[in-house]
Each structure stands twice: as structure tokens, then as C-alpha cells.
Amino acid sequence: MDRQYEGMKMHTILQTATRLGSARRSMHALLLFLTLLFANTAQAQEWHYTVRPGDNLWDVSTRYLSAVDYWPKLQALNGVTDPEHLPPGTKLRIPVAWLKRLPAKALVLAVQGQVQALIASTNKRVAVDPGLFLHQGDILGTGPDSNVTLKFADGSRVLLQADSELRLAILNARGQTPFVETRSRLEKGRADSEVTPRTTGAGNRYEIWTPAAHSAVRGTRYRISMDPTTATSRLEVLEGRVELQGGRKTRSIPKGFGTLAETGKPPLVPVALLPPPPLGELPPLVSRVPIRWSFPAVPEAAAYRAQVAPNEQFGFPLKAGQSCYR
């Protein structure tokens, strides 16, 4: 009986050891997978710094990182043997998440009509003129038949149309690097964005939030609007692709498509945008006002939105956001 018990006990121990060994192998495989996954993610979010003569890890950490305590991690990540002497020309891999967050600014490029800004630092309203720098927390407001064009730190631009309100929620730069974080909140009205393509990795962010949804892009041209009366946000993509999130669901909107999202609900399935009306019959030069023209109607179109600008880029419209009904 004792031998039988001992045999059963030994068999149980062997089974347990086998299960533990299998669990350890599974855990090792999982850790290896997570390590590779983290490595790939980290690599996609890294900045490569070129070492200059006289640089050491402490100087680089003080200059660029959010805390000098990161230097041992920086040494380990890059396999540096002598942190006091770095060979000039060496490339250091630095995760974007380690970089300092410094305040960035938005430059007013052009103004048409009546535009005001509520300055966060003084809580005072000022008239907006070209050349004015705006900062995080400032709120822009446009009047009827008015618009304003802003340029952000990464070169991206936004055209705020008439009767709109935009708050500059987050304007950050990651140290003295090309990585910029730009997040704005459109409370009402329309905003047309031309976002600089992201050629420097995943550190850059450009987002416009609305009470109904928020958009995130990596180099594109798109329009987003917010109607507080109907609690509805509309999105139209002209170039690239935009991720629109609302109601805990994200939709990817490709070029030539649009969608809408009501507050608290997910964005609708994207639909193809209608083509613009042909304008080939318009005169090449208009020297007298008022300006009137006609064009063939587009099937299914209920209204048209026209912009008049002094050049083909339409960066600084003289008139924007006018609805033209047929």
C-alpha cells in the first residue's frame, strides 16, 4: 500500500513538473513575443540623435530628455560602453516618450473679417491679426463672413471658417526635435486642415476633437465641422486617410469619402463625396464686384459651399464658408 502510494505520489509530481515546464515554456514564448512587440513599437516611436563633438550621455539627457535619470536606460538601449565619451557621428536611439515636452506656438498667417482670441494667460479677448502667436489654451472665434488661417509648429495649417470656435487644447514639442503634438477642440463651425506628412516616425500627433467625435491623422487634407444644435460632427477627407472616433468606435475614412457622428454614437459608415461642379466656364480674371456666376448642377447636391481666394492654393481665402443653394 505504501509503495503504491509512493508510486502515485511520484506520478503526480512528474505530472506537476511537466505542467510547470510547459507553463514556463509558454511564459517564455509570451515574454519573447511581448519583447519583440515592444521592440517593434519602440522602434517606430524613436528619434535618432546624431552625436556631436563633446557630447556625453549626461549632456544629451539634460538637453533632450524629461529627466536626466534616463541616461542609464539610454546607455543600455544603445549599448554604450563609455558614457563620458561618445564618438561624433554616432546615432543614438531615443524613445519619443522619454523626450521633454516643451510649449509650442501657433502662428496666425491670415485673417479675413472679425476674428478674436481669448488668451488663456490673461483671460482677455484680443483682436487677431496676422503675425500673432497663439499658445496652448487660447480660444479662437470667427464672426460672420470671417476666417483665420493658423500654422502650427510642424508646418500643418488649419483654416477656421466663419462662425466657428476653436480651442488650442494641446500644443507641445518634444524637446528640440521635429516631434510635435497638436490637439484642438472645435466647439462649433468648420475647420479645414492641411496636415504635414509624418516622415519622422510616430511621435507627431495632429488631432481635432469635437463634442461628438475626434479625428487623428498623419498627413492629409480634410474638413471637419460641428453643429451644436444637432450635436453632429461631419468629416470630409480630401487627401490621405483620417481616423474618426466617436461612441467608443473608430472608423477609418479614406480619400474622397465622408461621414458624420452624433454625440455619444459611433460614426456612420463612410459614403463617397459628391464631385464638385465643373467651373470651366468661369472667367480667368474678375475685376468687378459683385461677382456672379453659374454652373451646372450636380445630381443629388442640395447646396454648394464656395471659397474665393487670391491664388490656386486657397491658403488664405478672401471669402469662405458661404452656402450657395441652387
Rank of each mutant, 00 (worst) to 15 (best):
S61G: 02
V126N: 06
G240Q: 09
F295H: 11
K105F: 03
F133Q: 14
R19A: 13
L244M: 15
K265Q: 10
G258P: 03
V289T: 13
L109A: 05
V242E: 10
G219I: 03
E239N: 09
Q4S: 10
D154K: 00
V217T: 13
G7V: 01
A272C: 01
G21M: 00
I119S: 02
N311L: 05
G155V: 04
R326Y: 11
L274N: 08
A216Y: 03
G131A: 04
K188F: 04
A44D: 12
G89D: 10
I208R: 07
V148M: 09
Q245E: 15
A302Y: 01
W71L: 11
P276L: 10
L279C: 08
G219D: 01
E207S: 15
V51R: 02
L92K: 01
L14H: 14
Q4D: 09
P197Q: 01
L140E: 00
V269I: 09
I253L: 03
T81V: 10
F179H: 14
P103M: 08
A303N: 09
V308T: 08
T81H: 05
A297E: 09
E165C: 03
R305P: 00
T16D: 11
K73V: 00
N311K: 07
D129N: 06
T200G: 00
I170G: 03
L57E: 05
L99E: 11
E194M: 11
P254G: 10
F38A: 15
R63H: 10
D163V: 00
Y325E: 07
Q307W: 07
L102E: 06
E6P: 07
L318D: 13
P317E: 13
S233C: 10
E194F: 06
K255S: 12
G54A: 09
S184T: 12
S146A: 15
A153S: 15
P72C: 09
K319L: 12
S323R: 02
F316Y: 14
L37P: 00
L140H: 01
A231S: 14
L171W: 08
P95Q: 05
A297K: 00
Q112L: 04
V289W: 09
N78G: 13
G315E: 15
H11F: 04
L31W: 12
V195K: 08
T210A: 05
Q15P: 00
Y5V: 06
A169Y: 05
T18N: 11
V180R: 15
H214S: 11
V269R: 13
F152N: 03
R3W: 12
G143K: 11
R288G: 04
V108A: 05
M226C: 02
P277T: 11
G7S: 14
H85T: 14
R234M: 10
P267M: 14
D154Q: 01
S233P: 08
K100M: 12
S61Y: 01
D82M: 01
L31G: 01
L285M: 03
P278G: 13
P228S: 13
T35M: 10
G219A: 04
A29V: 01
N78Y: 05
P103K: 11
S294C: 02
F295E: 06
S294P: 01
N123F: 08
W47D: 07
Y222T: 07
L65D: 06
L160G: 08
A173E: 13
R157P: 00
E281Y: 02
S233G: 10
D55L: 06
D138K: 12
I13K: 06
L186W: 05
A261Q: 11
L260P: 00
E281I: 02
A97M: 07
G189L: 07
L274C: 09
R19M: 06
Q116W: 03
